[in-house]
Amino acid sequence: MASHIPDILRKHNSAILTDWLAEQARSFSRDTRARDDTPALSARFLGELADATAKGNVDDVDGEDFREIRALLEDLSRQRGLAGISPRDTAMFVFSLKKPLFARLRQELSGDALVDEMWSATTLLDRLGLLTTEAFQRTREQIIERQQQDMLELSTPVVKLWRGILALPMIGTLDSGRTQIVMESLLQKIAETEADVAILDITGVPTVDTLVAQHLLKTVAAARLMGADCIISGVRPQIAQTMVHLAIDMGDVTTKASLADAFAHALKRQGLTVVRAVKS
């Protein structure tokens, strides 16, 4: 026997839509951004749902018949994900349809037919809800991935301080992937500018363990192979203590407490001095 759901959806379209919108308005948290395009989307969704279910398979949401619905929901989830709306509010778009739809089912049907249709409607809406949540999750993951990439690129600038002096202020945790990028961009810049001295500033590195120290020493060794000297600056008191406790040997690498000290040292190495301007 064909399902009654499409017929009921069509017959009570405007009533269901009104109830649904009221339901959505109630269930949404105070965030109003979700509501701007909701009426139009909801009306479209109801129409598409009636069309899809009329084709026969009421709960085959992965099938061909539901392609339009899936596209609509994924689009909606993506937009809400990008707008920073909570997953709960995004999922409630579908779940809040249950109450108005069930009310109409109860009005139209009775007995076994009612139970059967309730079951198919629940399954259908649950699956659509899951679909929404999955799409939402995917969008958020894409955002996180993009931000990670941005951070990776943003956090490794190589700055020219003076002719022949480069500085590399490092921010954030140093793992192998980041060190590789840091090393490559620094060496590239050394080759381009023919800088004699590079200052690695680790003020923004929260912790230095044996692995991070090893990464730093590798960078210093590679720069030295190219003919540039490295100074490590921005060693905080706790980090100095940790390094001694971990018995990290920095070899003959010059270390300085602040970037200013390192810069002064680099200038001195270049044979430059800074003098106070004489007041006339």
Binding site: A191, D196, M226
Partner: peptide, 27 residues
């Protein structure tokens, strides 16, 4: 030793050959 390319320097360091006793220059 002068003018070592960045990629070469990285490779040598990864191979554990820091050539600590060799003097180097950029050009």
């Amino acid at each position: 030793v002068c003018g070592m390319q960045p990629a070469v320097a990285i490779t040598l360091v990864e191979l554990g050959l820091s050539l600590g006793f060799v003097r180097t220059a950029l050009n």
